[in-house]
Design a protein around this nucleic acid. Structure first.
Length: 444
RNA sequence: GGACCCUUAGCCAAGUGGUAAGGCACGGGACUGCAACUCCCCCACCGCCGGUUCAAAUCCGGCAGGGUCCUCCA
């Protein structure tokens, strides 16, 4: 299994730290708003990564944080005249609801900044003790210049960064690149610490949480490419000082989603919120249809294709499910023997093994759909259909695509058979009536 | 201004040296009592110009267009 490691910028064999186990962490949202479909890309993708690892039998520990202390949260809470924590709690719930609607698992470890304050403060203190951080008037900054290989992840050179810097120079800092670990403030929600009354900068939380949850270098750290610098670079800087490792062995960065070629972001305002978006499963399908490292462009025209493609998946899944159900021919424990199906599964797995190439994995899925549709009208084919159904379910489970359909009741099965015989005897008025009944019952 | 990336058919999208996967749309067939679904066939000299090589969409250089980061943003 190969993963593109953005730390080394190359495809590498995945070797877990502990055989059979995977520890992964993905940067989560700052909860001050509903998420848009661009926000959903990393969530859906890394959920798929998790699903694939689990399908291969790995014991996956998956953590993703909620940043519930932040200037934007404070501002929004002030605007709405409610406590910060009430606001963040509301948007955490909304987030979990939204990602659940995209069939992302929500049973992962969800650390929050407010619950990690002491860890964060201790972490900052440890940096100070090692003289990689300094306090000025209650603020605490990380001393970037003291670290030799700062910039290794994002391939940046400290000198170039300084010369190209357009950051407003904070006179208090030793160096313009030094980043804030703790900010003294009396505005909004704040916390007591030995440095001052204030709140933490956003770069320490992830690394303090990872330290507490995993206690060692993790296997995979994920997030959007926009977080590579400075956020992930800063995580690494702090971790190098405290633990002498780079947080994660494999760094994975997903490309961004843009809107008609303009980056979708809350500040531009060109957003489609997940909660308002009608096509949940097609959205998941769409997000996985392009390789995760490539940028993805949303337009109504191209999205409609994915709506159609998902409909086809839905139709095919339902038809094979129905066929097996009506014949009472489900066998979940059947071993797949059909060569064509096995080759397709193999193709699917090889592509997933190759840096989670979901675009090509979906191609394998499409081949399977064609196989099902080619075989579904052939007689005496239930064994093969059952195998194809199991393969279909396997792929859909990994991609996290669901089609809702339930088993047929006995009485409905009888009606269905009546309908079929009425058709056979060309009694079309009876047949149409029976079909109508079945449609009303939701069987067809 | 600096660093980096991308450009494949009408649209989306794989492919990283050996001669262009797949999907959607279009067109042509088939199946069908009607409808829906479905199946088969058809559909590309890989932004432009040069170079390296027996061989390039794939490597190198230039040009054009688009993007990301350097600043809050997944």
């Amino acid at each position: 299994m190969k993963i593109y490691n953005s730390y080394t910028d190359q495809l590498e064999d995945f070797i877990p730290k502990h055989p059979g186990k995977v520890g992964m962490y993905v940067c989560g949202p700052t909860v001050y708003n509903f998420i848009h479909i661009g926000n959903a890309r990393p969530v859906v993708f890394f959920d798929t990564v998790r699903r694939y690892f689990e399908s291969k039998g790995f014991d996956v520990t998956y953590a993703s944080n909620f940043t519930d202390v932040d200037d934007k949260i404070i501002q929004k809470a002030f605007e709405e005249n409610i406590p910060e924590l009430e606001l963040s709690r509301f948007y955490i719930d909304a987030f979990l609801k939204d990602i659940a609607s995209l069939n992302c698992k929500t049973d992962y470890i969800q650390p929050k900044v407010t619950e990690y304050m002491q860890h964060i403060i201790d972490y900052i203190q440890a940096l100070i003790d090692k003289e990689y951080a300094y306090i000025i008037e209650g603020d605490v900054y990380f001393r970037v210049s003291k670290l030799k290989d700062y910039g290794a992840l994002s391939n940046r050179d400290i000198d170039e960064l300084i010369s190209g810097s357009r950051v407003n120079v904070n006179e208090l800092k030793e160096n313009p690149l030094d980043f804030t670990l703790w900010k003294k403030t009396s505005e909004g929600i704040n916390f007591d610490s030995q440095f001052s009354e204030g709140r933490p900068g956003w770069h320490t939380e992830c690394v303090a949480m990872i330290d507490d949850i995993f206690g060692e270098e993790i296997d995979i750290h994920g997030g959007g490419t926009d977080l590579k610098f400075p956020h992930h670079e800063n995580e690494i800087a702090q971790s190098k000082v405290i633990h002498n490792h780079r947080v994660a062995k494999y760094w994975m960065h997903n490309g961004r989603l843009s809107m008609k070629d303009v980056k979708m972001s809350k500040s531009i305002g060109n957003v489609i919120l997940v909660k308002d978006f009608e096509y949940k499963m097609p959205l998941r399908y769409f997000l996985l249809s392009t390789h995760y490292r490539s940028p993805l462009n949303y337009s109504e025209e191209s999205f409609l294709m994915y709506v159609k493609e998902f409909e086809k998946l839905e139709n095919t899944y339902k038809s094979v499910f129905f066929k097996l159900d009506i014949e009472d021919a489900f066998d979940d424990n059947k071993e797949i023997q059909n060569e064509e199906i096995l080759l397709t599964i193999n193709d699917f797995n090889e592509n997933m093994d190759n840096d989670f190439n979901t675009a090509n994995a979906i191609t394998a899925l499409q081949a399977l759909l064609k196989f099902v549709n080619q075989n579904i009208r052939k007689p005496n084919n239930l064994e093969i259909l059952n195998e194809a159904y199991l393969a279909l379910k396997y792929m859909m489970d990994i991609l996290g695509l669901v089609v809702s359909i339930s088993r047929i009741k006995k009485e409905d099965r009888a009606i269905y058979k009546e309908w079929q015989s009425a058709r056979k005897s060309k009694d079309f008025s009876t047949a149409d009536g029976l079909r109508k009944t079945l449609v009303e019952k939701g069987v067809l």
